[in-house]
Design a binder for these strands. Structure first.
Lengths: 365, 365
DNA sequence: TACTTCTTTTGGATCGTTCAAGAGGGGCGA
DNA sequence: TCGCCCCTCTTGAACGATCCAAAAGAAGTA
């Protein structure tokens, strides 16, 4: 077992003091070029790595970011969080941070978890996935000046949230989100472009912010080209069977739609079932279905089944979360990720990023 | 902002010394009942929480466990790791540990990650998911006496691995796994019980340990009742289209199988496609398919589509991983999880746990 | 009373790092 | 020449916990 390498070991070898080594690491400009080089050489020769615990004790910063891991959701959308987590971990590593997990069964439990994590591990920041109306968690964190970013808009004021970053309204906290309305609009527009005129929508029951936002993308797009969406949408809880039932209902109308846009892949899978013949299922089939179907989230199932779906840039969203946090934590030293639509804080508001999803076109539509 | 609560704050309030407070926390038996109570009262009144960084600096233990988060796999099986992670985090919290994530693109990168994590954060242990033949990572960790558990058997010697814990062969390191062969055997046996005699198998190409293990469950079960499995299995890389192709090939045989067991839900989904009529897809349908199909992993897709599938007890597996680590780290203070088949170390080997999966029967078979 | 033994408490040292303050040397203007 | 500043580097102290050695107190024994 090799001797433990500390800053003192490095200092001895480079024939300087501990503080100089520390300066090379944290404030290189204060050290003369020649000395800096000598210290760097010693560091890599000895394989020195700064001990985070000791650093944390002095600075109060742990370089740790916490994110909640939720129990797998019902339905097909299980792997979304998974992909986000992976992106988050990767981006955090690049920025010199690590990701720590915690669980909680509800908002109250999540706040307890914050308390415990902050007390024991001095966490630097939190990433919240999914935001609620009038969120108790964001209030708690804000009150205590704990840095955090949400993946999901603060939906407190629907009218404001709807417009999102497009008008750069001051935000109560930094957030990153994917523009669901835009994704659904892309899907709808493409169907219009390929000649469809009666385009239906199967989404979640009214009242869910994310669901209403996605529906608005379909609604507004139809209206913008002078088509009447009335009677062409159905609301159903997320799920295969619910999607199928909604689609059957929609198709039983006097003038059934020739295409259906869905708020999730789970619903879309059910809709496809209601709509398609057996031969169409094959991934390799180039046979067009009778009714075009579009999903949302581009889950592995959509990929397997050949379902056209709206794909969220999860890795990019995760990278943005880390960027925003790094801005707060490191004092704006890092630039934003490339290609993001970023609204910088204005009038006391916080940074907000709204990403555009992309449409992955497959055989289903 | 409240004053920071340290062990000294608690000591002052309870009118004892710091050491006495520390003893109450780490060696309560050394402190007189009355004093102990007074200190406990002060701790909860002040909301004191031990600072892990300071504790770690003195003791060298961080109470942190690391696990790799992999990029989402191809195919339907995305949420398996997700569920395992959730269970791991929950079990770790209960045992007083936290879970930290890291990424790596290959074995070499993973070893670099170990090095970095150990150097910077003094990690207590690692959980490896998925094991390879002749794994470089386990060798590295063993060499440096870093505690770890693998979720997945060490497959170094196929003959030995096949028998698993059933014979309690000394293991090179602690591991937890799910008995895939047993899961497939359960599925096969159930098909036999419901009258099937020609039962096929669609699995991965030979050479993958997990795949061969699952195939053996089907093979051995047929043989045990005097049936000949010859010609009734097909090998295909994981995926929907591959499963469909394999099934078509199988069904084109002179005496096609009346039921097909699959090594994954992805394959099963493709097999179902090759096998079923359109009406059978509905989750609510009670129409029996022409050919019974069984998957593996009980993914959300299987749940949505009504596919009979073998379900891995992932939460339990995660809890076992934590138990085994706690045994090593805390010196065997904790008992094993209830209801596990546990082989305790014998003759210098390490603890190993082989869990039984369960069959979730749905409409598909 | 003095000595021993056992329990409980105390003060000081320590882990590895960064902060605050200061020392030493050279350049520059008065 | 002196004083001042700047640049570079060094020294001592601190963060908050635990470990260690030893003191204080209680109780038993000669």
């Amino acid at each position: 077992m090799a001797e433990k390498v500390t800053i003192a070991t490095v200092a001895r070898r480079a024939r300087v003091s501990r503080q100089t080594v520390s300066n090379v690491l944290n404030a290189p400009h204060m050290v003369r070029e020649e000395t800096r080089e000598r210290v760097r050489e010693a560091i890599s020769a000895l394989g020195y790595r700064a001990n985070q615990a000791a650093r944390q004790m002095r600075t109060g910063r742990s370089r740790l970011i916490a994110v909640r891991i939720e129990p797998t959701r019902d339905g097909v959308n299980g792997s979304v969080l998974d992909r986000f987590l992976h992106g988050l971990t990767e981006a955090a590593e690049a920025a010199g941070y690590r990701v720590m997990l915690y669980t909680a069964s509800d908002s109250r439990g999540e706040i307890d978890a914050y308390d415990s994590l902050l007390g024991a591990y001095d966490l630097d920041a939190f990433v919240l996935t999914g935001t609620e109306h009038d969120d108790a968690r964001t209030a708690w964190l804000t009150e205590r000046d704990v840095p955090f970013v949400t993946f999901g808009r603060p939906w407190d004021d629907p009218a404001r949230a709807r417009s999102g970053a497009r008008t750069a309204v001051p935000s109560p906290h930094p957030w990153v989100d994917v523009d669901g309305a835009d994704g659904v609009a892309q899907a709808t527009r493409r169907l219009l472009d390929t000649g469809h005129r009666r385009i239906g929508f199967v989404g979640w029951p009214h009242g869910s912010e994310v669901g209403d936002d996605r529906r608005s993308g379909w609604f507004d797009t139809l209206r913008s080209v002078g088509l009447d969406p009335t009677g062409l949408d159905r609301a159903a809880p997320d799920g295969f069977a619910q999607g199928e039932a909604a689609a059957r209902d929609l198709l039983a109308a006097a003038e059934p739609p020739t295409a259906i846009v869905c708020a999730s892949d789970s619903l879309a899978l059910g809709v496809l079932q209601a709509v398609r013949g057996p031969g169409d299922w094959a991934a390799g089939s180039d046979q067009r279905p009778r009714v075009a179907v579009t999903g949302f989230d581009d889950t592995p199932v959509a990929q397997a089944i050949g379902l056209t779906s709206v794909s969220q840039p999860l890795a990019q969203a995760a990278a943005c979360c880390v960027d925003l946090l790094a801005d707060v934590l490191d004092g704006g030293l890092r630039g934003g990720a490339a290609g993001t639509r970023r609204s910088d804080p204005a009038g006391g508001g916080h940074a907000q990023v709204l990403l555009r999803p992309s449409l992955v076109v497959r055989q289903s539509g």
